[in-house]
Nucleic acid binder design. Structure first.
Lengths: 194, 194
DNA sequence: CTCAGCATGTAAGCTGTTACATGATTCC
DNA sequence: GGAATCATGTAACAGCTTACATGCTGAG
């Protein structure tokens, strides 16, 4: 049962958008994908090496003559096939590990300021994320239709939904802890729509 | 910069609830905590060994005479101190890695049935989770006040919010893909090459 | 008797991060 | 000249999973 690291597929997927070097890939992971996926150089370069050895990727370098010899990789038909197999395979739930929930779960009743601080952090973090998402959404929607796929919009919306949920949860939980009224009225209506 | 594996704190935290063996801890990770944290035996036993060596945990075994010699661990004052330091430290954002988003992001416009299947999986998975959460919530709220801490309720609510958000997002995205509201125009260009 | 559950642990191996080593080019 | 950025890689280590090895007890 080979675990088949996801890194290789992330690389192959990016290369279907455009060919690029290890450095380019890392940049791509930083900018648009970084919100839900990231890889370090320590993953990327060895993975590229292996993909090259297996023929899922080929070198098309030689361009950009000025710099140090940039190695530009492109996906091969074999790589495309491999990717499409992976794309079609069902994804099983990845175990969520939310460290902040561990901290809250183990908090003591008396000392409420510490968990409140954690919740505040969560709220500001996701509020900030929401601003970034909104900027990206404006950008995508402002583009002509061929500038984006529905899938880019969909992944973005996932981040937005998640961050909205986390921010709302953090606010709700802070109120609960501050008010100290916990059992009688479990929660105000607060209808999430859809 | 020691990363200080979270495993040790998860163990210490559980031991503040009640003493137990490695096996007991694993069960605890399975049942109530499993929704947002999990550890394998391969993590737990070595961690317990190390915690014992460091004096953050002590053996209080000797009970349950029938079985194979069950090693029951309890947290020590030193362990409690260590835990409270960790509890107070701010949590930094853990990079989310959502494999299903990768798959959606790399999907091709034409073949819509595959991403639809992934979204359907997400929806049913979180719908099922929501049912489990609801059962736990009923259980917690039905208990007398000392039966639960507000923190247990808070962590549970986080799971609920998250799953609501994911299920809603999946439904919304399926509608978008099926309706083709924007895919009708966004199809032909398809600029994919170097 | 057999199977499920209780119970402890180890070893191999993959995944992933961080720090390090190296060097070119561009802009100030 | 110096800093930032481009660019490629390796080595050491930490985290984590999986498979394996072992053996008990109770229920059917």
């Amino acid at each position: 049962m080979k675990k088949e690291s996801t890194t290789r597929y992330a690389i192959l997927g990016l290369l279907t958008y455009r060919s690029g070097s290890g450095y380019d890939l890392k940049q791509a992971f930083h900018k648009p994908l970084g919100y839900f996926w990231d890889e370090s150089y320590g993953q990327i370069y060895p993975a590229l090496k292996q993909l090259l050895a297996e023929g899922s990727v080929k070198l098309v370098s030689g361009d950009s003559p000025g710099r140090r010899e940039k190695k530009v990789y492109a996906i091969t038909p074999k790589g495309e096939k491999e990717l499409s197999v992976w794309l079609a395979a069902p994804t099983q739930a990845d175990r969520p590990r939310l460290e902040v929930l561990l901290k809250l779960f183990f908090s003591q009743d008396g000392e409420v300021s510490i968990p409140l601080g954690h919740l505040r952090d969560v709220e500001t973090r996701h509020q900030k994320l929401l601003e970034e998402y909104a900027a990206i959404e404006r950008l995508l929607l402002g583009l002509p239709q061929q500038g984006h796929t529905p899938f880019q919009l969909i992944t973005l919306r996932c981040g937005i939904r998640q961050s909205e949920a986390m921010a709302a949860w953090a606010r709700e939980s802070m109120a609960l802890l501050e008010g100290g009224i916990l059992s009688e009225t479990a929660r105000p209506p607060e209808g999430r729509k859809n």
